[in-house]
Design a binder for these strands. Structure first.
Lengths: 324, 324
DNA sequence: TCTAATTTGTGCGTATGTATG
DNA sequence: GCATACATACGCACAAATTAG
């Protein structure tokens, strides 16, 4: 039999007060002690109720002063923070599909930590307690576990796989090592004729674990392995496949191609990461290996609705074009 | 948990007054009772704030006379909010160069209003009073003037030009109409041989005022004018120059080109907006017309440091390539 | 300037009911 | 039936910020 949680009466009382116009925007609502007297509940229960209202953005607290109405939109159930590294069009895909999947009763804010551990740390402090759901793309492997636990809401980790946090929070992630391995394996017939596989990446925003996948693939199927930070001013090796997540490296490679009079997809291969419309028309079409960020947004919505901790692997997709 | 202490608002108010030139060296600042009335804080809290200012050497007190400004060379921690429309890599340029120009002692948050007037309105309410500088990229011409004035910090408008707000707040903006006109004029010799200029854009995030510039240019120099929302499944008109800010339209145009066996830069022209590295290698190089967002960030930093209201026009740059 | 009162924030221990396997 | 985990609920103590006198 369903029984209403006792602390909910405080939540409903505040909601009703706002609806009736008794508590207006900016007004102070009764203090914890005041609620204790009028409800007979324990201090902890009152705090639980006020915490819920806070996480929905309906009230804010000023230490040692009181609780205040900060929004009259009591229909909000989930107040979600997306805490990303750096802006990109792919992040936009995640938030759009997330918002669409959850429907009404949701407000979403987006903040960026710039892949800087210190900034991330400060932001976590600043936003703690103010949201009901925190969707976080972690950057480097900094020690944020204790902070995440104290956010006071559901935490969902996205995109980047962080070993030490898996299993402790829900997550939808890419597995860069295994995804790269599997993708290469899936196009084995097309790449058999190449000798070497070279990863080109320098940005601190890109995971090095891709290299693990490449190494394992090359060991299994007898390719040579290579890694360089940039192709700037370097010639292309014939018989190699270049993998790169960076647009500037694509330009370096294609410029070198022109200079050396090579033919892409014959003399050498190229696989880029992250599908964008423009890649369809570059050099007759660039081959791309991408994660489906729209799907990632939908999965995040599911994780929000379901209780408990779940770990989901986001699917990858290889689009074969002219460059293999 | 991280929270600004209440008495800090007095500290910030004095800092802002000095930066704005409202309180000059030797001036008397408001009395304790005056602060009590305007902030609603207790006497003790006001004294706490004035104590801090005194210890930083910013004010001095004269028993039973008042508090006076003793130094205007103060170190302030700028607390900056960037309130943008939608995420994009160009916005990243602005914030990076802004942060770099201001150096240390700066905290920057970035929020997005999604080009939605209602969201912008709610966000302005939510963040009011919490920052010392608000850098805002407005969306549509909504009525936010009164809200901007009540933010309690320096307001700087960026990127989009909003007629009704110019002169009332500092701004660094593009002038889409005149920039487009000037850019076309600057490459007149190269485009003389075309007959028609067609703008292709559909996104609600793109300003329609570009059309005004195109119309004026075409009237002056005797071109035909055209506008369509999308080139999807449409053939290319020979003798036309297409202008588009959207990547998907570039793909539609280049696909149509292949199908009709046309040569870009001869049978028709193409000018795209916003320079990216990849545009160097598409179809032998796409011509781009861009605003320098790095420069915009630097200019914003200047506007923050200088008192008063200034209006700055951000420069544009046309990179001529293969498509004209 | 000092002190007492109020109010929110945090931590720890304990007990209970409910869902899971 | 049993072990476990988790959310709910209560009580207590102390810390930190603010207020009032």
């Amino acid at each position: 039999m369903f029984r209403e949680k006792r602390y909910k009466q405080v939540v409903h009382a505040v909601e009703k007060g706002i609806l009736d116009g008794k508590y207006k925007l900016g007004d102070r609502i009764p203090s914890i002690n005041s609620w204790r007297i009028r409800t007979g509940l324990s201090r902890s229960s009152i705090i639980l109720a006020l915490k819920e209202l806070k996480s929905r953005g309906i009230i804010e607290s000023d230490q040692s002063v009181g609780y205040f109405v900060s929004s009259t939109k009591i229909e909000v159930v989930y107040r979600i923070l997306l805490l990303f590294g750096i802006p990109s069009l792919f992040k936009e895909d995640i938030s759009n599909s997330l918002i669409q999947s959850l429907g009404n009763g949701v407000t979403v804010d987006i903040l960026f930590h710039g892949a800087d551990p210190e900034t991330l740390d400060l932001l976590l402090d600043k936003v703690a307690g103010k949201y009901s759901v925190y969707v976080i793309i972690p950057s480097v492997n900094c020690n944020i576990e204790s902070k995440l636990k104290r956010l006071g809401g559901k935490v969902i980790l996205a995109d980047y796989y962080v070993d030490s946090l898996i299993g402790k929070f829900s997550s939808v992630t890419q597995d860069f090592a295994n995804d790269t391995y599997d993708a290469l394996e899936s196009c084995l017939p097309a790449i058999r004729r190449y000798k070497e596989i070279i990863l080109v990446q320098n940005s601190r925003f890109e995971p090095m674990s891709r290299m693990d996948g490449i190494k394992r693939f090359c060991a299994t199927y007898n390719f040579e392995v290579g890694y360089i930070k940039t192709m700037e001013n370097l010639p292309i090796k014939q018989g190699a496949i270049y993998l790169t997540p960076e647009d500037r490296e694509i330009v370096f490679i294609l410029t070198a191609m022109e200079k050396q009079n090579l033919v892409i997809g014959r003399d050498f291969g190229l696989i880029t990461f992250n599908e964008t419309v423009l890649k369809k028309v570059i050099s007759g079409g660039l081959t791309t290996l991408s994660t489906d960020f729209v799907q990632m947004g939908r999965t995040i919505a599911e994780l929000i609705r379901q209780p408990g901790i779940r770990t989901v692997h986001n699917p990858w997709k290889l689009i074969m074009r002219n460059t293999l």
